[in-house]
Write a protein that binds this DNA or RNA. Sequence first.
RNA 1: GGAGAGGUGGCAGAGCGGUUGAAUGCGGCGGUCUUGAAAACCGCUUUGCCCGCAAGGGCAACGGGGGUUCGAAUCCCUCCCUCUCCGCCA
Length: 425
Amino acid sequence: MLETAFLRNHPEEARKRLGKRNIDVEGLLGKAATLDEHRRGTQQKLDTELAAMNEQARVIGELMKTGKREEAEAAKAKTAELKERIARLKEDLALAEKALDEHLWAIPNTPQERVPNGKTPEDNVTVMQQGELPQLPANAKPHWELGAEYGLFSLEDGVKLTGAGFPVYHGQGAKLQRALIAFFLERAADAGYVEVMPPLMVNADSAFATGQLPDKEGQMYHAAADDLYLIPTAEVPITNLFRDTIVDAAQLPLKRVGHTPCFRREAGSYGKDVRGLNRVHQFDKVEIVRIEAPENSNTALEDMTNHVKGLLDALELPYRQLLLCGGDMGFTSAITYDMEVYAGAQKRWLEVSSISNFETYQSNRLKLRMRGADKKVQLAHTLNGSALALARIVAALLENNQGPEGIRIPAALRPYTGFSLIAKK
RNA sequence: GGAGAGGUGGCAGAGCGGUUGAAUGCGGCGGUCUUGAAAACCGCUUUGCCCGCAAGGGCAACGGGGGUUCGAAUCCCUCCCUCUCCGCCA
């Protein structure tokens, strides 16, 4: 969430930056200012009363010690009224804090200056595009047909086991998954990311700190008996590793990578966007996370983006980089690049990575701070990006590399798959 | 799942109703000494919020929450977690 100090001290900047989003900026900021003022006022009153009470207790303590029982009892009698006022103010403060926090949670992160204005995906800016779009014959098959034909994965099997949107991978299809994961992890390790294998379920505190709660509650699977959430991305457990910590600035950046399955309810989505592996409830993803000093976070964002481009180059997939507009950006992000690959048979772009700088929006909830050379403590910046999301990569690989003899595996992946072709049966 | 023990500052470890945000040791930072280093000695060493230009001041926090009391790290309730033993088990 946004920092009250920032809203208080830089209202113009907050207004300007939030203006890129499709929201009622004036209403949200006005209310935030009112609630903040009320909270501070209430705390001031409470603190004053508490100071008076502490003084009384000190005096009574002295009297008791020196054996002046009578005077002590008299002093005690006078504290009743104070006590009552304090109790009332405490309630007021709790309510004021709750109201302010809940309101703050409802305000999204402030987009950076360079984020384009806009409301829909049409307003996103294509930063660059790389690779030739494949010229496939007219009878080229979409990946779901290829998956069935070559026995690589089955959505039907998943329906039997679980429900719609839970693919089961078979044979070379399963091995291709494993190869991609290993390849991505290896490349991340080479780039200095330390591998993490986290739990796939997190508690509410974790889900809250990275911003999945309260606003995306319905998007996560929830194990009610234990009140745990299946992670929608490794971002959640990995970033939460640093919750409630103060890191030494000299140790930054902290670079982590993790592979996990990701679980998403995707409530309300249907239609042709969800055919095959385009949108499923469980998919594998390798995620990179960085904790950075504020002055370095934007450089880190570019570095992460270049890392992802390197992966896509190696996979020989045509891709493009989008700079998301204010209206299409995630709630918690200050700037986001989406990477999309072209799936030749579907003739459409599929999002395979989303790379974001959250600045202090997450770290404020995480209480993730850094101590600089000057000993001062301040919030660190968090970033993360997919590197990469599997199911859609597989979709594009299958479609683009289909040929008369089968499906060709890009050279970079062959050491991991152990085969260079998924041959026709 | 059952029984017992316990959760205090970066770590170890006191405190068990009255200037205790917290003894002591280690670690860390600064200084004296030294050609340099070590040792020794001296000082400093949590975080959040609020008021203030600042200096400074106030409030809160001893696993979380609630209660008793003029006053709680210290007493009571409750939840969570850790450890030991038993049971179960990939």
